[in-house]
Design a binder for these strands. Structure first.
Length: 133
DNA sequence: CCATTGACTAATG
DNA sequence: CCATTAGCCAATG
């Protein structure tokens, strides 16, 4: 769309980066969480920042609440109480936050989409920032 | 095509 | 543990 680069061949790679991010986020099961950096690494050709930017424009129906920052905390956004809502949603899914407002990747860290999905979308494997491996 | 807009992360002291 | 700094890049109008 807004790409003036002249390329008009619509391939999966040329699809919006955000779209791939959304596809990946949509694969995160309830009760599990991923980090922005993890998302970036899995979709590839993307930085943690871009992952966050993409989430800022997340479409309805996307489980955006399952994406948190590298510290395992819900990131505050520019406006609104979205962060509060996000944490609430996660708690409703069974995520347990520490007194400091952090969650444990060891308990609810997402290990990535199924191999089939990864292959279908060309994703790479990655684990949450603090996950022991 | 240019300017603006963001829900990040790792390194350093 | 907390504050600061620097690197990062696509989407949108």
């Amino acid at each position: 769309m807004t790409r003036q680069s002249g390329e008009s061949t619509a391939t999966v790679k040329d699809a919006g980066l955000n779209e791939r991010i959304y596809t990946l986020v949509a694969e995160i099961p309830p009760g599990q969480v991923a980090t922005y950096g993890q998302i970036a690494k899995i979709v590839g050709n993307c930085t943690p920042r871009q992952a966050g930017y993409a989430m800022a424009a997340a479409p309805d129906g996307l489980p955006w609440q399952r994406v948190v920052n590298s510290a395992g905390q819900v990131s505050a956004r520019s406006s609104g109480d979205g962060a509060i809502v996000q944490r609430q949603l996660l708690e409703d899914e069974g995520i347990v936050f520490t007194k400091a407002g952090k969650l444990k990747f060891d308990d609810c860290g997402w290990a990535g989409p199924s191999p089939e999905v990864m292959e279908h979308h060309g994703f790479h494997q990655a684990l949450p920032a603090g996950m022991r491996g």
